[in-house]
Amino acid sequence: MTTVSDSSVPVVASSVGPPPRKLRAARRRRTTVFRWITVVIVGGFFLIPLYSLFESSTKNLGGRRVWDAWQAVGSLATADDPNSKLLWVGLRNSLFLVALTLIIMLVLLVPTMTWIRLRVPWMRRTMEFVCLLALTIPAIVLVVGLAPIYRQISHILSTDTIWLCFAYAVLVLPFAYRSLDAGLDAIDVKTLSEAARSLGSSWTGVILRIVIPNIRSAVVSACFISLALVLGEFTFASLLNRQNFATAIFQVGQDDGRLAMALSLVSLLVAFVLLLVLSLFSHSRKGRKGKTA
C-alpha cells in the first residue's frame, strides 16, 4: 500500500491546495446540468404518452376537439348506456376488492410478523422465503393453478368478482411485507410489547394499540402500494372472467377508444396523486438505523 502511494502522494498534495474547492464547485455544476438533462429526457419519455392520452381522447378523427369522452367520464355513475354501466360495476368491484384485500393483508401480516419477531425469530427466514416465492411466481402462472381452486370457491361461495380478494392478497404480499418489515425494523417491538404486556395488555391490545400506531407510516405505505396494485389488476380478473376496473376499461376500449383513453389518463393521474400524497406522508419516517430487534 505505502509503496504504491509513495510516488503519488506528493503530486496529489500539491493539487489538493486551493483548486479543489473550485473543482468541486465545477463538478457540482456539472452534476446539476447532468441531472436536469436526464430528468428532461426521461421525463419527456414518461410524459409524452400521457399527454397523447389527453390529445387522443379529446380529438375526433377529423382533428376537431370533442369532449364527449370526458363528459362520459363525468357522468359515469348516473349514465344509462352499457359502457358507463360496465365501468361503474368494474370500479365498484375494484373498490370493494381494495378494501377486502387490505383487510386480509393486514390481518395476515401484522400479527404474524410481530409474533415472529417476538417469539419465533427462526421462522423469519421461512416467511421471507414465502414472500420471495409470491414475488417469483408470475400472476399468469397463479391464474392457471388458481382456476380449479376458484371453481371450488364458485361452488362454495359464488362466482362474484369480490372473491378475487383471496388471490389479490397473495399478489400484494411481497410488497406489503417489505414495507411493514422496514417499519418494524425501525421500532423496538420487543421492549414495547413487553412493556404493554407487563401493564396488563392483551395480545390484541399489543397489536392494535402498540404495534400498529408505531408503524403507522409503514402500514399506510403498504396500503397504498396494495391499493395501486389491486386497482390496476387485470390478469386474474380477465382470465377468471371477473369484472373489475381494468377489465372494464379494456372492454370499453374495444368500441369506444376515446372513453377508454380518457379513463386511462384519469386513473393514472389519480394513482399518481395518491402516491404523491403518500410520499409526503412518509416524509417523517427517517430514523431507520439503530435499534433493531
Binding site: L133, V141, L142, V144, P148, V170
Partner: peptide, 8 residues
Amino acid sequence: FLVLPTII
C-alpha cells in the same frame, strides 16, 4: 392460495 396453485 400460493403453494397449492403452484403444485397444481
